[in-house]
Structures are given as structure tokens and as C-alpha cells.
């Protein structure tokens, strides 16, 4: 469910927040004073759904998967280009080396690089979906997944270093 927003990849996140807040004001358990237990239970299950939908819609990977699913395309079989895979492998090796050397500065530098790259992929996806070129979006979704996983790893390294 898209919380009643027009399904589009280039989602305006502040519009999403606003809609999410509007719906939460109706369905959140805190707002059920004066309602019957049946209505409360129903509201609770809606609140759970609204929270889950919000979380999914904010996530660029899941949003892209949902857009592909709308167009009847599966996203899980898509593979990125061999060149991209080579790139990612190099990045990961670099990250492992930086981690082994406890070079947090290098880790952060790589993270910034990958973040910029991720933002370009997201822009590319928005353009592809916007023009109805869903086929072009398929490999980009796969790239996005790799980049997101890389950034998760960076987070784990930062946390490890901090603790």
C-alpha cells in the first residue's frame, strides 16, 4: 500500500511524512480514546500496516522493488553489469583493507564516494520509472542493492570502532 500517494519512484519524502502523520493521527493506538474495543483492535492492525508501509516507502530499494512489481516485473533475477560487479569487488577489498588497518578516515572517504554513487543510481531509477522505461530500471535496482549493502557494512565498521 502506498498510503494513498500516487505511486512514483521519485517520491517526495516530505509529502510522504505529511501523509504518514495524517494517517497516524487517525489509526495510532493513542488516538482511540472513546472508541470501542473492536475499533481499537482494527485501528491497531491498521497502524501496524501504515507503519510498515511507511518504512518500505522510505527505503529506496524496497520502493524500487514495489514499482517493478507494479509493472509485473520481478526484480530478484536482475544482475548488474559485469563492470559494476568488478567495481564493487574492488570497493569491498578496499573496505576490508581499511578495516584491517583501522583506517577510519579511509572507510569514511569510501562511504562518501559510495553514497554519491547511490544517489546517482536513485536519480537514474527515478528517471527510468518516470519515463515508463521499467526495463532500464531492473539492473539499477540490483546495483542499488549492492551499494546499500556496502553502506550497511560501513555502519557496522563505524560502530565496531566506536564501541
Amino acid at each position: 500500500m502506498t498510503l494513498g500517494l500516487t505511486p512514483t519512484y521519485g517520491l517526495d519524502l516530505s509529502a510522504l511524512d505529511a501523509r504518514y502523520h495524517e494517517l497516524s493521527k487517525v489509526v495510532h493506538p493513542d488516538r482511540q480514546a472513546g472508541r470501542s474495543p473492536a475499533e481499537r483492535r482494527r485501528a491497531l492492525s491498521l497502524a501496524v500496516d501504515v507503519n510498515a508501509a511507511y518504512r518500505a516507502l522510505r527505503d529506496p530499494v524496497r520502493r524500487a522493488e514495489a514499482m517493478l512489481a507494479r509493472g509485473g516485473r520481478a526484480s530478484d533475477r536482475a544482475a548488474p553489469s559485469p563492470a559494476f560487479l568488478m567495481d564493487v569487488m574492488e570497493l569491498r577489498e578496499g573496505l576490508a583493507a581499511a578495516r584491517a588497518a583501522s583506517d577510519l578516515g579511509r572507510v569514511r572517504g569510501m562511504a562518501d564516494e559510495v553514497r554519491a554513487r547511490r544517489d546517482r543510481v536513485i536519480a537514474g531509477l527515478a528517471a527510468a520509472f518516470g519515463a515508463g522505461r521499467d526495463d532500464d530500471a531492473v539492473p539499477l535496482v540490483a546495483e542499488l542493492r549492492y551499494l546499500a549493502r556496502f553502506l550497511d557494512e560501513v555502519r557496522a565498521i563505524e560502530e565496531e570502532a566506536d564501541a
Binding site: 500500500m1 492492525s45 500496516d49 518500505a56 516507502l57 524496497r62 512489481a69
Partner: peptide, 19 residues
């Protein structure tokens, strides 16, 4: 609500309860 819901698809892993 039905109108809104018809215009959208369920995101992966989320049941379209409302619809």
C-alpha cells in the same frame, strides 16, 4: 479509500489490508 487503493499496488511484503 477504495479509489485510492485501486490506484496503488502492494509494496513487497505488505498486505494491502485496506483494500
Amino acid at each position: 479509500l477504495g479509489e485510492v487503493e485501486r490506484s496503488v499496488e502492494g509494496a513487497k511484503g505488505i498486505e494491502a489490508h485496506l483494500a
